[in-house]
Amino acid sequence: MPNPLHNPMFKETGLWTPGHPVFERISQGFIIASMVVMSIGTMQSLPENVRHGLMMTDMVFGIGFAAEYAMRIYNARNRLQYIFSFWGIVDFIAIIPSLFIGGTDLKALRALRLLRLVRLLKLYRTSAALQRLRRALEKVRYEFVAFAILSALVFFVASVGIYAFENEAQPEVFSSIPASMWWAVATLTTVGYGDIYPITAVGRMFTGVVLLVGLGLVAVPTGLIASALQDEDIAETEEEDPEGSDPERL
């Protein structure tokens, strides 16, 4: 079975080839560990020596990502094409935080630390499961568009409805349709924060209807994704064993 992680942009030269399972697992480990270090580094109560250690660790991750970037350039069939490709740019941006602003606390540079989040994009490239999910989502993209349009209509109707029923009783809470949209979001997603709620009988009845509709809205995308993933698994099984999936051979 061909390696699902291999990118034809790179040459297959062995263990350290981009796309090889060992290479990509190491890359995944670096990405996850760097996110853990970034998260711990935001704790204000850390001793100075621990903070310094985290800074040095982040620098090591930066060097590791730089080495990965260099190896991908070296193994690319067309190096300029890789450098200016989407993933080439992602790999380059992932290096910047540790190598240039690693441990600084200057407020002007803190926003640049968010560039570390770009490293999470690299997980997609190194995960066959995420690529399978992407293929499944592509199969139901039109259904998702239709679902998004329907959800937007329901969301607007819910906002208008609760405004009509509650504005007179709570003019400071449901002061306008845009102000009522927060209630619609919390209710349709079945979160129900409870910071704003209806007090009239008709408003509460309307809320009950919206809650039932919200349960359906939450379930629809889950069903679409589950069905698409099942179809993707069946397709992969047939690709691996085409003879076994032929009913005439059973």
Rank of each mutant, 00 (worst) to 15 (best):
M56P: 05
T222C: 07
A219N: 11
P47F: 08
D195V: 07
E240K: 00
Y193G: 14
T104S: 13
A186L: 03
V173Q: 12
V90M: 10
A66M: 15
G102R: 09
T190V: 11
E232F: 00
L212W: 14
E138G: 02
E232K: 00
R249Q: 14
L137H: 05
P2D: 12
W87A: 00
Y163T: 07
A33I: 06
F144W: 05
F30G: 04
I93E: 10
M55K: 02
V90G: 08
F86C: 01
R79C: 05
P171Q: 11
P97W: 07
A33L: 10
D241V: 00
A152N: 04
I32E: 09
S151R: 00
A228S: 05
V37S: 11
N7C: 08
A201C: 03
A128K: 01
Y124L: 06
I225Y: 06
V210R: 01
R249I: 13
S85A: 13
G214P: 14
S39M: 13
L137Y: 08
S227Y: 07
V218Y: 09
S176T: 15
F144M: 12
A146W: 15
A94Q: 01
G53A: 00
E166M: 06
I26S: 08
P198D: 10
E143W: 13
T207Q: 14
M38Y: 14
S159L: 00
L150A: 14
G208P: 15
P171W: 14
I89F: 13
S39L: 15
A128E: 15
I31A: 03
I26A: 12
W183L: 03
V140D: 02
R132Q: 09
P8F: 05
I177C: 07
L212G: 09
L106I: 08
A70I: 14
I63F: 15
L150M: 12
